[in-house]
Each structure stands twice: as structure tokens, then as C-alpha cells.
């Protein structure tokens, strides 16, 4: 695809620019859709309808209207806030999750950058998110924000351990950190004759690994039941309390981008990425993008589903869950997968 664009435009920097904003477009369109979907899912789970008016059909334009409203709103910075950090925080937050999309193969024809340490890069750059949240919480000069930020620090640092360990167990199987290669390894329908060659079917322990990964990913993206940094019924809005207008909108966008990012990573690592579940049927670069986003959206939907079902954990229980259950379990799982790999290969 890059070659095609290069031949078409015959200018290096422009092509790179066009090429590199593809994920941004996807994120923006996805965020508009996902926020609408979240409202609809929430509505119907609660026997309501959700947005119905804006745009005509089932309120499809509601998020666009909200976005326009947010752009018009006054950009309020509290008088006693640290202005520079306060204004920077949302951008860093978004940059962190946007940057991570570089290493994700959206289809067989598209990956932002073919870096060999893709997984490592994603893990590293998403950690920036917690920095930005601490910045936001501290700079707001608000006690609720500060509490939220402190929770985030503890939460993100803790949950990175099980995330990395479960990713590591996949890497044992694939032997590469490059996500494109990880995906390519999962093509074909060889497993048990009809199931796709996805890593989740590799061994029973892989299912557990995915499970652990998913829980940790929920915590990393601050979704219910792990939404302690913002927990609106306790901390008012957590680190977002003092934000308004588009800066708040950027945090919102980051949250949804983060959901998609972790879902896509999960889909790539466990569910064959852009591979079609039907072997060569419906396969190809464009179909690949479709499958990739579909798998991502399914996981995003499950996150929403959980959000509208479960209450929220308390901060000490969150830590308990991580350090007492997830981390030991993921290490044990890592060892078991390693043994499985030794025995059956």
C-alpha cells in the first residue's frame, strides 16, 4: 500500500504524512461510533432507548453534536492550577494512546511502522498515559483530582505487570515481538481441522492467559469495574474534575482510543489479528482491516457490557486482585505455557 501511495504521489514526506494519519482517522470515526454505541448499549441494558433524536435514525449524530458543543465551550483553567501542566496533560494522554497504534497491523497491507519490538513499544508508550493522568490530577490543584491521580499511579503501575507477563506468554509461542509477524503466524485453518490457527486455541493455558490479559487491559484502560481514577460516584470526576470543553473531550477520546488499542492488541495476540476466521475466504488487505476492527469492536463491546453490569472495586481490593491473584497466576501460567511449548513442539 505504501508503495502504491508512493507511486501515486511521488513525494516521500507527504506520503508518510497521509499514511501516518490513517489510525487517527480510524480512532476519530471509531470514537464517534463507540460513544454512540456505549450510550445505546447502556440504554438498552437499562430498558431505555439511549439517544434517539439527533440525526434522525436512532440518534446516530448525537456524538457529533456533543463534539461540536465541546469545541465551542469555554476552556476553563482553575486560577490556582499549574497552567502549563494542566493544559498539556490531555495532549500527552492522547499522544500516548495514539502513538501506540503505530505498531498495530490494521491489515495485511497496513502497519504504521514495521518495528521489530512492536509489543514492547506498545507496552512502553501506553505507560505515558499514567504520567499524563498524574499530571492532570496534580495540576488541577483539586483534592479529588489528586486522589484520582494517586489511584491511577498505583493502578497502572500494578496492572502493567500482569499485562506484560501475559503478553510474554504469547511471545514464548510466537518467538517474535513484531505484531505483523505474530499475526502472519496465525493465518490458516489448521487447528483441529477447522478452527483457525489462532493463539487462543494453542493450549488451554492460552485461554487463561487471554482472560488475565483482558482483566488487566480493563484495568489499564480504566474501565468499570476498575474505573477508580475517575469513579464519578466517589471522586466526583477524579482527575477529570476540573477539565471542561475539548480538553475533557480529549480525555474522553483517549479513554475510548485506549479501549480500542487494548482490544486490538488482544485481537492480534490471541485472535489472529487481521486473519479471516474462514481461512482464505473473505481474506485480503481490506477484508483484513474489516476482521481486525470487528474483532476489536467485539472486545470493546464486552468491555461496555461489563461496565453496565458490574459495580466498582475499592482501591485496596484492586491492589489485592492484582498482586494476590493476577500476578501469581500469570507467572504460573507463563511457566505452564513454556512447558507446553517445550513438550508439544
Amino acid at each position: 500500500m505504501q508503495e502504491f501511495l508512493e507511486s501515486f504521489m511521488s513525494s516521500g514526506p507527504l506520503v508518510v504524512f497521509v499514511f501516518s494519519i490513517i489510525p487517527l482517522k480510524i480512532i476519530l470515526v471509531y470514537a464517534l461510533f463507540a460513544i454512540w454505541l456505549e450510550r445505546k448499549v447502556a440504554g438498552h441494558m437499562q430498558d431505555r432507548l439511549g439517544p434517539m433524536e439527533t440525526g434522525g435514525w436512532h440518534g446516530w449524530a448525537q456524538t457529533i453534536a456533543d463534539l461540536l458543543k465541546m469545541i465551542q465551550k469555554e476552556d476553563i483553567v482553575p486560577a490556582k492550577a499549574d497552567r502549563f501542566l494542566f493544559k498539556m496533560a490531555p495532549f500527552i494522554a492522547f499522544a500516548a494512546s495514539y502513538g501506540a497504534f503505530v505498531a498495530i497491523p490494521l491489515s495485511s497491507g497496513y502497519i504504521g511502522s514495521m518495528i521489530d519490538v512492536g509489543v514492547f513499544y506498545i507496552v512502553a508508550i501506553t505507560s505515558l498515559l499514567s504520567v499524563s493522568i498524574i499530571m492532570a490530577g496534580w495540576a488541577s490543584n483539586n483534592k479529588w483530582s489528586l486522589l484520582g491521580a494517586m489511584r491511577t499511579a498505583a493502578q497502572t503501575v500494578s496492572y502493567e505487570v500482569p499485562t506484560v507477563v501475559t503478553i510474554l506468554s504469547v511471545i514464548i509461542v510466537t518467538g517474535t515481538l513484531n505484531l505483523m509477524e505474530v499475526t502472519e503466524m496465525q493465518s490458516g485453518n489448521g487447528f483441529l481441522g477447522f478452527l483457525p490457527n489462532w493463539i487462543i486455541f494453542h493450549s488451554p493455558f492460552m485461554i487463561l492467559a487471554f482472560f488475565l490479559f483482558f482483566i488487566a487491559a480493563l484495568a489499564e484502560s480504566h474501565r468499570v469495574p476498575f474505573d477508580l481514577p475517575e469513579s464519578e460516584s466517589e471522586l466526583v470526576g477524579g482527575y477529570q474534575t476540573e477539565y471542561s470543553g475539548m480538553r475533557w473531550g480529549l480525555f474522553m477520546l483517549t479513554e475510548y482510543a485506549d479501549m480500542l488499542l487494548l482490544s486490538l492488541v488482544g485481537a492480534t495476540l490471541f485472535f489472529g489479528g487481521w486473519n479471516s476466521p474462514f481461512g482464505s475466504f473473505m481474506d485480503g488487505p481490506l477484508w483484513g482491516a474489516f476482521w481486525m476492527l470487528l474483532k476489536g469492536m467485539v472486545l470493546v463491546f464486552v468491555m461496555m457490557w461489563l461496565r453496565w453490569t458490574l459495580p466498582r472495586l475499592r482501591v485496596d481490593q484492586l491492589m489485592n486482585l492484582c498482586w494476590k491473584y493476577l500476578i501469581p497466576l500469570s507467572f504460573v501460567n507463563l511457566v505452564l505455557i513454556a512447558f507446553w511449548e517445550m513438550i508439544f513442539k
Partner: peptide, 16 residues
């Protein structure tokens, strides 16, 4: 009470 704990859905089911 469920809402305080973070569960939104039971709240609306109760309201129905």
C-alpha cells in the same frame, strides 16, 4: 446504593 457502589444498571431497573 448500587449507584454509589458503581453499578448503574440496577438503579434504572429499580426505577422502572
Amino acid at each position: 446504593f448500587g449507584l454509589d457502589i458503581g453499578a448503574f444498571t440496577p438503579f434504572l431497573h429499580c426505577f422502572i
